[in-house]
Amino acid sequence: MKNLLKRYRFFLVMLLILAGVAVFDTALGLKATQMSWDNLLDLMAVVPPIFILLGLLDVWVPREVMIRLTGENSGFIGVALSFLLGSFAAGPLYAAFPVAGIMLKKGSKLSNIMVFIGAWSTTKIPLLLFEATAMGWTFMLGRLILNLPVILIIGFLVEKSMPKQDLAQIYQSAESF
């Protein structure tokens, strides 16, 4: 019980702030509640399949296969696969972190995981269609084409900037996911 309270501390503080806002300004409080509720529904709509796929990935894909496909010497295939995996996702970026955790645990290369994260945030296919509708095709295509190399560069730079022992530590802590 005490542990539960500790884990949900941040959420409880946010609820208190929300209540505070509502007392201070009822209309604003209601609007914030409505926005939070909409956010929650949006998230809950995409969360079940993501985590089911994550569980299946963890159980069925052996570490050796994952290493061969996206690990240290996976080369172009690893980058392309990470890109596709991220592009076929749904949901906000923080839903990608647990999936990235499983990829770490399975021995994927960090730069490839960063490409996955980049693709998840920027080149998700349903999102691109949505972006084109809201912002116009020029905006969407321009941003997409400019971001493709950016995602690769970020992946490369993040991995290169990591000292060996820090890198080892990330993989070690991923064992418990």
Partner: peptide, 15 residues
């Protein structure tokens, strides 16, 4: 836990 907290925080910020 973090997700729920973030959702409420974003809701407040957007409002």
């Amino acid at each position: 836990p973090q997700m729920l907290g973030i959702i409420v925080l974003i809701g407040i910020l957007l409002a």
